[in-house]
């Protein structure tokens, strides 16, 4: 932090990977920490999603009896949140760091606090709080209880014990941590404008800022999301994704519906429908009443995928 009140990470590898001065250093520190814990470190899912929760490594793997510990960065798209690069904290594309631990370990809160220490947030200096926030995703048919985690009054993470996902009761319950990476980085770097974040931890002419990487994209996508995105095409894409999802789900079941062999491709179409809906919503072409019905349609897909997942090997089917 600029005024030097934050202690650096336990043993900063190299100065340019110090999580308090490098955005990518912060990501690497979190990956290192959760890798040490025993998580599989995955790469981002290669589709447009609204949040890290949509990654099948969370949505689907949270279901069924098999233990599962994973962590990954997920670029998240929120078309409506675009501000043409003019707002200091709002982005239509940002990064979440997602941790999913199934079953939720008894010391999950402490694990989280220790992870903050690794990126330079010391609980002897900073006021860290767990403030009620019940999480619900209407499109995923999911809910859980937990908190927003506050650091000196700023929300830096979401902490959720999943109770239900894709309409299915979680058994056992998984714990989900979602770090808002830009926010955390702005905090530890002491920066007020997201585009001023130091991305690579270098100085002077070697420094690459978050703005260098993403400002142009924010402007272009804001224009696309709000003004130009082809709505006729998107309506068609929604319809096609919905149909494809249903078709793949039907095709994946065996005769007595005890086994499913094509859940992941079907779920991809559910993700696609969800993102297309978000684009249409940003374009303002969905009325308030229609909005509800689109959300329900996506939820139906998610629930059907969740049910199918339980009939796969990954979902614990014998």
């Amino acid at each position: 932090m600029a005024d030097g009140t934050l202690s650096a990470a336990s043993q900063p590898q190299r100065n340019n990977l110090d999580p308090t001065r490098s955005f990518q250093g912060l990501i690497l520190a979190l990956q290192q920490y959760w890798a040490d814990y025993g998580c599989v470190i995955l790469q981002p899912y290669d589709m447009e999603v609204g949040a890290g929760t949509f990654h099948p490594a969370t949505t689907l793997r949270a279901l069924g009896p098999k233990p599962w510990n994973a962590a990954y960065v997920q670029p998240s798209r929120r078309p409506k949140d675009g501000r043409y690069g003019e707002n200091p904290n709002r982005l239509q594309h940002y990064y979440q760091f997602q941790v999913i631990l199934k079953p939720s370990p008894p010391n999950l809160q402490q694990l989280y606090l220790d992870s903050l220490k690794v990126i330079g947030v010391d609980s002897a200096l900073h006021d860290i709080r767990f403030v009620e926030d019940d999480w619900e995703s209407p499109t995923l048919g999911a809910w859980g209880l937990g908190w927003e985690c506050w650091c000196d009054g700023m929300e830096v993470s979401q902490f959720t014990y999943f109770q239900q996902v894709a309409g299915v009761e979680c058994a056992p319950v998984a714990g989900e941590l979602t770090y808002g990476l830009e926010r955390l980085a702005m905090y530890v770097q002491g920066v007020d404008r997201v585009y001023d974040l130091n991305f690579n931890g270098r100085d002077d002419d070697k420094k690459v800022s978050y703005g260098d990487v993403f400002l142009q994209a924010e402007k272009e996508y804001s224009k696309h999301n709000f003004e130009v995105a082809d709505t006729a095409m998107l309506f068609e894409q929604f319809r096609m994704a919905e149909q494809a999802c249903q078709k793949y789900l039907a095709a994946g079941y065996n005769d007595d519906k005890s086994k499913h062999t094509m859940t992941l491709p079907a779920y991809d179409q559910c993700i696609k429908a969800s993102h297309v809906f978000n684009l249409l919503d940003a374009r303002g072409v969905i009325s308030v009443t229609e909005r509800q019905s689109y959300i329900l349609r996506v939820r139906e897909l998610a629930k059907a995928c969740g049910a199918a997942w339980l009939a796969t090997e990954g979902g614990g089917a014998q």
């Binding site: 005024d3 009140t5 002897a124 006021d127 650091c151 000196d152 700023m154």
Partner: peptide, 18 residues
Amino acid sequence: NIEATDGGKAIIAGNERV
């Protein structure tokens, strides 16, 4: 919720920023 080792300077600074 804590008595910070720096007397709360960092906490105040953080809250002021938010």
